[in-house]
C-alpha cells in the first residue's frame, strides 16, 4: 500500500517537474520533439534509479555513520557525476544499441537538478528504506517522463500555430507548462 502511495504521489500529485520545479532545463530544452523526449526519459530513469540507490547507501553507511552529513552536497554531486560517466562506459560496452539511443543525453544529466534533488529527498527522508527510495526514484523518473512527453506532444502542435513574434519559443512554452501544471493540480485529490 505504501508503495502505491509513493508511486501515485510522485507521478501525479507532486509531479517532479510541474509541482516541485526540478529538471526544468531538460523539460524546456529537449521537449521540441517526442522522440528526443522519450530518449531523455530513458536516460533519466536509468541514472536517477542507480544514483538514488548509491547515494542512499552512502548516506546511511558512510555519512551518517561517521557524522559527516555536512559533506552531503559535495559527495552526492561527485557520485552522480562519476556515475554518469560510468553508466556511459558500461552501456557502450554492454549494450551498444541502448548506448546509441541514450548516448547524447547522458552527459546532460549531470547538471539535471532532478537527479540530485531526488537523491537528496530520498536520502534525507526519515521513513524511506532502500526499497522505498528505489520505488520513489523510479516513480519520479516516470513522472518526469510523463510531463516531458505530454509537453513535447503539445509543443509539436504549437510549431504550426501563429503567435506574436515575442511570444515564440520560451514564453509560450512556459505558459503552456503553466496550464499543464494547472491540469496536474487536479490530481491533488488523489492523495
Amino acid at each position: 500500500m505504501t508503495y502505491i502511495l509513493i508511486i501515485i504521489g510522485a507521478i501525479f500529485v507532486n509531479n517532479i517537474v510541474l509541482s516541485k520545479f526540478l529538471g526544468i532545463c531538460p523539460f524546456l530544452g529537449v521537449s521540441k520533439k517526442i522522440s528526443t523526449a522519450v530518449g531523455m526519459t530513458g536516460a533519466v530513469t536509468f541514472v536517477m534509479t542507480i544514483a538514488t540507490i548509491v547515494t542512499w547507501l552512502l548516506q546511511k553507511y558512510v555519512l551518517l555513520k561517521f557524522d559527516i552529513e555536512y559533506l552531503q552536497t559535495i559527495t552526492f554531486i561527485l557520485v552522480i557525476a562519476a556515475l554518469v560517466q560510468m553508466v556511459e562506459i558500461v552501456l557502450k560496452k554492454v549494450s551498444p544499441p541502448l548506448y546509441q539511443a541514450l548516448g547524447i543525453f547522458l552527459p546532460l544529466i549531470t547538471t539535471n537538478c532532478a537527479v540530485l534533488g531526488v537523491a537528496i529527498l530520498a536520502a534525507t527522508s526519515k521513513d524511506f528504506g532502500l526499497m522505498e527510495s528505489t520505488v520513489f526514484a523510479i516513480a519520479n523518473a516516470i513522472g518526469f517522463g510523463l510531463a516531458l512527453i505530454i509537453f513535447s506532444g503539445i509543443r509539436e502542435q504549437l510549431e504550426f500555430s501563429d503567435v506574436p513574434e515575442y511570444m515564440k519559443g520560451a514564453p509560450l512554452a512556459l505558459i503552456v507548462a503553466g496550464i499543464l501544471a494547472l491540469a496536474f493540480m487536479g490530481f491533488a485529490a488523489l492523495a
Binding site: S19, G169, L172, I175, M185
Partner: peptide
Amino acid sequence: LAPGAFIALGFIIAIVNKLSKKPAQ
C-alpha cells in the same frame, strides 16, 4: 502555487522580448 510560476515567468520573458525587440530563437 506552481502553475502561476510558469505563467508569470512566461509573460515576463514575453515583455522583455517585446521591449528588446529581439526575435526569440
